[in-house]
Design a protein around this nucleic acid. Structure first.
Lengths: 185, 185
DNA sequence: TTGTTTACTTACTACTAAGTAAGTATATTT
DNA sequence: AAATATACTTACTTAGTAGTAAGTAAACAA
């Protein structure tokens, strides 16, 4: 991939997380990168092509990260997961899911499918992490691992959203209590 | 308020929840209501004026609803709260907070303030509900009531978002587990 | 009856969006 | 050396956006 293409995706990723997919324009990209509007269209003919690429790279990043944590105990893997979100929180970013879900109905089918792929990937990983952790009695929770994974993901996602409105302490409190809930019986 | 003005706010409320505030236009309102674009501007000169009115009415609705539940035991009040969200889930709506938070940075200061007012209002109500419930040993949870309220709100909010992407069962599972967590020690 | 307010419509402006066709400079291959 | 591919720019179209100025018909008030 060319250098410019990389820069476009990186900046677009940030724009999606800060403004939303429908709220940023090719001008928001061509301006700061000092290229022309048409240059962005050269690399990504339609905006949906750019959107798919952003989600694709995010999926790849998630897989790469979770692979690095593979040998850690499950509760440590969960801490790592919240740290990823904490980093986003600090930068004022929200997670891709939290940003794309509200606009979901307005997205092209190809992008909708990519977002669903991302969601089910994250959920599958977290479900297995919780199941393994409970089996080893390192993590404690009630109900199905699948449901608990849904709760945790939705919590982390929404905490980034709430932090926007209520300040960064909202994220900190939620993340700490979530981990605490899972550590003790 | 005139009949037309009421219709505009009701339709705009639905549009915010389904498409997002920045993603709908005055044409989406004037078209279905069979009035002209300028008629919408007559009632709401700027889009932000319409946005403020939507949030204001939502705050008023929340206050009216919670007042009706005042005499119920706290755990019943929580059930009522999830029922409000369940109704939205069924209609494919997301909650106003979940819809406006991602676009928060792009909103006018007056709208930002209104959204913050709504958030702190909901949080204050839920915090008191949880505190009272715990005092009477009807509700059980660890940590500060304030933090627990944040977790529950963010869960309900995000579950509506996730339901968009993952289907309506996501909401059902999350809501049931949440109530179950609070009912038992 | 005249004046004024209400609730609009008509007809527009200024601007921004995504997207495209055709041209150009530079590097790479044949 | 000629042909081709890459990575753009220039200049444009089409279609939408929020917003406004001026006019109008009907209800109401003085």
């Amino acid at each position: 991939m060319s250098e410019t293409k990389d820069k476009i995706v990186a900046l677009a990723d940030r724009l999606v997380r800060t403004k939303g997919f429908n709220a940023f324009s090719y001008k928001d990209i061509s301006g700061p990168l000092e290229i022309k509007n048409a240059a962005v269209h050269y690399h990504f003919p339609a905006k949906a092509d750019l959107g798919v690429e952003i989600v694709d790279q995010d999926i790849a990043k998630f897989i790469a990260q979770t692979n690095k944590w593979k040998s850690l105990p499950e509760e440590e893997q969960l801490v790592k997961l919240t740290e990823v979100f904490r980093r986003h929180s600090k930068e004022g970013n929200i997670c891709l899911m939290g940003s794309l879900a509200p606009d979901f109905e307005t997205l092209e089918p190809a992008m909708q499918a990519k977002v669903q792929e991302m969601a089910s990937g994250i959920l599958a990983w977290l479900t297995r992490c919780l199941e393994e952790g409970r089996k080893k009695k390192r993590i404690h929770f009630k109900g199905a691992a699948n449901t608990r994974a849904l709760i945790i993901i939705s919590n982390l996602q929404a905490s980034l959203l709430l932090s926007r409105v209520m300040g960064p302490s909202a994220f900190r409190h939620i993340a700490e209590q979530l981990l605490d809930d899972l550590r003790h019986k």
